[in-house]
Structures are given as C-alpha cells and as structure tokens.
Amino acid sequence: MSKEKLVEIRNLKQHFKTGRHSVVKAVDGLNFDIYKGETFGLVGESGCGKSTTGRTIIRLYDATDGEVLFNGENVHGKKDREQLKKFNREMQMIFQDPYASLNPRMKVEDIIAEGMDIHGLAKDEKERKAKVQELLETVGLNKEHANRYPHEFSGGQRQRIGIARALAVDPSFIIADEPISALDVSIQAQVVNLLKKLQEENQLTYLFIAHDLSMVKYISDRIGVMYFGKMVELADADDLYKHPIHPYTQSLLSSIPLPDPDYERSRERFTYDPSNHDTSEEPEFREVRPGHWVLCTTKEFEHYKKEHGAVTTS
C-alpha cells in the first residue's frame, strides 16, 4: 500500500452550544491521517462523536477549530462555488439509515442522478439514464428499478441505492457512516462485500464508521478507537485486536460475544474506569509501538512501552 496521505485531520474540534453556558464537546481535538486506498475504521460507543467526526469532515457541520486537509487542501474555511463543487465530487457519504436517506417522493433514477444533475455530468437524458442503469448494476440491482420509488425496496436494497448515489459523482473518498448498522446480519455481509468490491474496482478510500467491532475488523486496514470525542488508540486492525493497549480498547474488545459456548463461558469482561488514569498531566497521543498510537500521559507511556512495546508485531 502506498503511504500517500489523502486526508489529514489536524486538531479537529466540533463543539455544539446547547444552552447559554453549556457546550457539548462532541469532537475534541482529533488527529489522524487516512492514506490513499485504505479503509480507516472508526469505532467507539454510541454518542462518542464518530458520526459528528464524519459529518464535520464532509462539511455538513462547520468545524469549531482545527482543519481537515484533503489532498493537502483545507476543506473548511471560505471557498468559492467552483472549489466547493470540486470538493463535493471528491468526497461522498453513505448514510446510516436507509429508510431516511432516500427522498420518498423521488424515483430511484432521480435519486441516483441527483449528483450528475448538480454537476452536469450527463449531457442528455439518454446518457443520464444509461449511467443510472450502469450504477444500478454495479451495486447489484436491476436496471428496471430505476423507475420505482424508495418505499418499494428493502433496507439492503435501499442502502445499495444510497451507495449508487454516492458513486454517481466518481468520488475518491467515501465516508460510510454506520452503513450497515440498520441492516440484517445477512444483508450486512452483502453490503460490506459490495463496498470492498467497489474499493478494489475504483481505488476508493473509506472512512468506515461503525460500532460493530467484528465487521470493522473485517473491512478496515487501520482502526481508530474514539471515546468521548477523543481518539484513544489508533493502530493496524490486526495489531489493535491482538494487542489492545488502552484500557478502554481492552474493555471494548472484551465485550465482543462469539458464537462459541466454550469461549463465552470463560469470557471475561473488563469494565473501563476512566478514573484509573494518571491525571498528573494532560494525556497526549503517543506512538507506543510503530504505527500504534495511544492517548496517554508520560507515566502511562513508560508503563505501556514496558508492557507492550517489546511484543513483536505480527
């Protein structure tokens, strides 16, 4: 894999004012890079700011502070129409709820072609139709489906229509905001495999947001673990699963159930207690092992390094 950075997120902050004096720090100082062609998994419990991160990266929210560099260019800040349009084509999003993400009053054809209409990608009606049918087939749907309305489709089919809509503008980076959490397990595999196939065919880069850990491990190259708006651990997928360092990650991994009664009987669950941390200084993001970053203080860093740093990366 080439180690060319596609997206760089620098000290990204997203705070929401909820009252005159109260502020919710949904995302509080995120730093990470996404390399070209990889799938970056973002996991964490509900409400820890995963979706907000995704939406802020794609400019649905204006960031409170920090910057998002896409191909070296800042996404946020003032931009003229042309720049915005270019950016909108490069970066796309797949949404969580397939029942809410398609306009019930529009035909599938118009939903998928919306991006083409906005960016003027189809010269005439015929080309538009042909492109829509091609996209429908790419995502494994019938081309007759173009004339139907969203309510006639199942959740999995709808999600594939959502994927086709995102693909219509030929993006290079797709943010998948929990694209499978609203689907059946059997359909989840279908959608994830489709995403993998598309990645190979179109050299896509994904930011895959999810809370289903096993699915994230399956699809991601690297995984970031979020906790209360902060990234607590970031490592290669295998490394993270085999050698979780941060206690929160350990707790998260210990909670994965497996369909194996023998294992389940002996499975030990760790509870994460944030008060166990060393509070002598502000924790920082440090590289404990090559490519494996953990949020920790100096003292903890020494401790982690002694405990985990020696283990050879597999």
């Binding site: 649905l60 349009k85 809410a100 993400s101 960016h119 809509r165």
Partner: peptide
C-alpha cells in the same frame, strides 16, 4: 435534518434545489 437532505447537501445541491426538490 433528514439524511436525504444531508445527502443532497453533500452532493453540493444549492439551497433552492433542496427546497424545490426535497
């Protein structure tokens, strides 16, 4: 704030298109 409107915005739809079409 429905996702289909957000989707339209990420595609770069101007305000009047969102109002008119969605």
């Amino acid at each position: 704030n429905q996702e289909f409107v957000l989707a339209s915005r990420t595609l770069g739809a101007p305000d009047n298109r969102i109002l008119r079409r969605h």
